[in-house]
Amino acid sequence: MERILDVKNLHVDFKTYNGTVHAIRGVDFHLNDGETLAIVGESGSGKSVTVRSVLRLLAKNASISQGEVLYHGEDLLKKSEKEMDNLRGNKISMIFQDPMTSLDPTMTIGKQVAEPLLIHNKVSKADALKRAEEVLRLVGIPNPKARMKDYPHQFSGGQRQRIVIAIAIVDYPEILIADEPTTALDVTVQAQIIDLLRELQQKIGTSIIFITHDLGVVAGIADRVAVMYAGKFVEYGSVDEVFYDPQHPYTWGLLDSMPTLNTSEQDRLNSIPGTPPNLLNPPTGDAFAPRNAYALQIDTEQQPPFFKVTKTHYAATWLLHPDAPKVTPPVSIQQRFKKYQAWLEGDVK
């Protein structure tokens, strides 16, 4: 499998009124051809900033202070603004969170969908509109020919997100970055959008980076999952590994706070106490330590490196150090371990 995107040691700073916020503090990840990578984390953990750095669509007060973003081996951070314009919407495109605000309210849908084609290809307006119509049909807008002349406000939220997706895929991008594309939608619509993305991935063979804070959504779409906390990845691996053999206490906390089919009305959902650290002055040790019930002395002094769990599964927690004490994860996590064991053994047989 070819790595089409390889992000190395990414650091992003924001200059704010109160000082410099170190929003991304050394992130490494890669994206394989044709796969879906989900990045999970609570709001403010830096997921959006990470993927926006790939497209270099950061706010004016942000700067990428270190790192490389290799796209087919070329560092996007060294490209000119013009070269980036040629990539955006063409090779790499993006789907935004809020479909209610991400469409130009005064431009017809047809023109908005056709726009990337007209920017990147030498096509006639008529051909571009024709292609736009096809794509609108593909994403499930009924009667696209007539509706191309409509304005965004004439569509429902779910339909608008389909249109945003149509804009993103109209030029067959290699990489599709979806920044919480379902968060602003109703639950039923969420499922439709996930299905649509999966279906489109099969049809046009694009790779997807999918950002969400909702672990429930991840299981349905991702091949691999990366868990992010306070500007760093804390654990990554295949969906099964992260869901059923999680190693980082933060991942435990996330999974433990998720309702399952077995959660009855009397059960209280568990939550992770406390709030994420202030990244104006990032802690010297593990950023999660203050909220971590399993924190070790070393966590407050030194950041944990990634420990290898399997060939594809890594976690940054001192608990994986050979010298670390054995801890008992929450009950729900133990049940996951059991399922995973049973599943692995079943597989072996």
Binding site: G274, N278, A289, P290, A295, L296, Q297, P325, V327
Partner: peptide, 29 residues
Amino acid sequence: MEQVPKIPKEKFKLLNKQDNEASESLGTP
């Protein structure tokens, strides 16, 4: 993926929760 650094064993003791809450109160006024 990285070499496991040499760290004295006593560093690997579990902290109790009170310590955690104290460290959490650190923030900008």
